[in-house]
Design a protein around this nucleic acid. Structure first.
Lengths: 213, 213
DNA sequence: GGGGGTTACGTACACCGTACGTCTCTTGGA
DNA sequence: TCCAAGAGACGTACGGTGTACGTAACCCCC
């Protein structure tokens, strides 16, 4: 049956697949090798170690997100589009999201979105200092939102998966009163709310000089 | 020398200490036991398993942060204070921050800040829906900021620790031009910038009805 | 034809979490 | 006072982990 030869790309693909099917804890070198039908140590011909493999996973997932940038659009729309693009990670690879977020990527995959964002912010009228500031603000928001969406960070539902388990209303009156709101979380709506709030906030920011379109 | 008897609290304290000294990867049941001068299996008399221990670590770190809430202050100041309080985590227990952020805590330690925040936002004039929205927005920002501060998420410095390793200026003109800004990150200033931006944004938010002080 | 590089793979080692059984010590009740 | 019962400390053992190392098969170029 002439199995495809091993390669870095195939190993990373198998790892991503495994993570999405069974979670990051299921990943082990032995497991991936078995999945591909090879011996464990064969992996090390293509990947220096497990850590590097996971970096490869993060990089691959990140590079898969598709940005559609229209240089002629208003800068607010460009920011909107770029911010939304990141949510593809949570959608396409929910259980790998943690990996993407928690590994600093030095490759072009990691730098490309930064370059694009900075260009957009500069064109919106921010000087270097504030373009970087605003970018970091957005990234913090995006990282936090993605982690909530994929469930590593809580939505702050008083119960979390099984029984309803009422909260003590005298100890936590607000939490208790709003428990039905806290229990559900429309990630799309929350994200849009946040993005719009941020865009509106920076649009009126005094450090932005108007005009450059 | 009459060593103190084992206890859940002592085990958790040892775990936190170990994490801060050598990082989360260094934590193992054997290692903690050795650190305390006991056999491995003795730990299991006080803690059901490693996962529960790590939850205990997260809970302990979280519960250590000190909120100073002045109910008479303007709501913007109360929000400011509460938001700032979380940065104590990154300062006091940088290498445990990831743990705190990535484990949903159902205990009072996790619910207390939520209760306080919701009360403040309600008093600022938000209805339930928008109080929860705004709270989630802040939490996303805080989580993302803390992860950047403790270094799990990149600051987007083109080099990351050793050599300067210049970025290709034709491929990434903005990144390259702003590389000195990207290289350094004043976490305090970034955080304050974000908090102020958010406060200013929600202060003018149309869903907030003015007046309740 | 032979040598050198690449790849697959088996074995081995140190370490991991934890189930289980045992031994010791403390404590409450008769 | 004595004994039963519980709790805590701990040794051993099992199945898992990442990976260093050695070996054997293959391909390509001289």
């Amino acid at each position: 049956m002439a199995t495809e030869p091993l390669s870095r790309a195939r190993i990373i693909a198998a790892a991503i697949d495994l993570i999405e099917r069974e979670g990051a804890d299921a990943v082990s070198m032995r497991r991936i090798a078995a999945e591909l039908g090879f011996g464990v140590m064969s992996l090390y011909n293509h990947v220096p170690n497990k850590d590097a493999l996971l970096n490869g996973v993060a990089e691959t997932v990140l590079s898969e997100i598709e940005f559609t940038d229209d240089p002629d659009a208003h800068w607010t729309d460009r920011v909107r589009m770029q911010a939304r693009a990141f949510r593809q990670i949570a959608h396409g690879h929910p259980r790998s999201t943690m990996l993407v977020v928690s590994r600093q990527l030095r490759s072009t995959a990691g730098l490309l979105p930064v370059e694009r964002a900075l260009a957009t912010l500069r064109s919106a009228g921010f000087d270097g200092v504030h373009a970087v500031r605003v970018l970091r603000m957005f990234i913090a928001f995006i990282v936090g939102s993605l982690l909530r969406e994929v469930g590593v960070t809580p939505t702050f539902a008083p119960d979390h998966r099984h029984t309803v388990e009422e909260v003590d209303a005298t100890l936590f009156p607000e939490v208790s009163a709003l428990s039905s709101l806290l229990r559900s979380c429309d990630h799309e709506a929350e994200y849009e709310f946040g993005v719009e709030l941020l865009i509106q906030a920076i649009a009126v920011h005094p450090q932005r000089r108007e005009g450059t379109r």
